[in-house]
Amino acid sequence: MDILDNNTILYIAAFGLMLIGISGIVISNHLMRIIFGIALLEAGANLLLLLSTYHEGASAPIIVADNIPTMMADPVPQALVLTAIVIGVGILALALSLAIRVQRAYGTLDMREVRLKLEQEISDEAGIDMPSSSEKPDDIAKVPLNSVVQQESGS
């Protein structure tokens, strides 16, 4: 089939991973799922980066016994993805550590409840009543993505 050459399939995989990741972040309320959504989104972005100069049939950019291949793959995206993966691992570990502490403090990992308890804590510390829902700064949420996250926690 003409439309489904290798390039297309790989790009569909990359964008598909990103879409799944974004759906995870946007749709779910549970922080663990959101964190995994970020990991998936990153994986998609990494694959996209690898595909940026992908050539079918290119060999690994390594010289073995003075045998220089006719076409070697571009080493730059590989190095970049290596960097991006390590960064992703560090941030993932950090997110999990924070999630453990948040769970211990608030007893929940539901994004809405965490947000409510956080508001409560800030307001308590400031010594004011928690702003009621009508007074909540809803103005910052007008773009689709944002409004979803906002509603998650607001409604």
Binding site: T53, P61, I63, M72, A73, P75, V76, P77
Partner: peptide
């Protein structure tokens, strides 16, 4: 791209067989 340019000179400039 920059990567192919690196492939062309990396062996000479760094002496590593693995260009990544």
């Amino acid at each position: 791209n920059a990567g192919q340019a690196i492939n062309a000179v990396a062996a000479e400039e760094t002496g590593a067989a693995n260009f990544v």
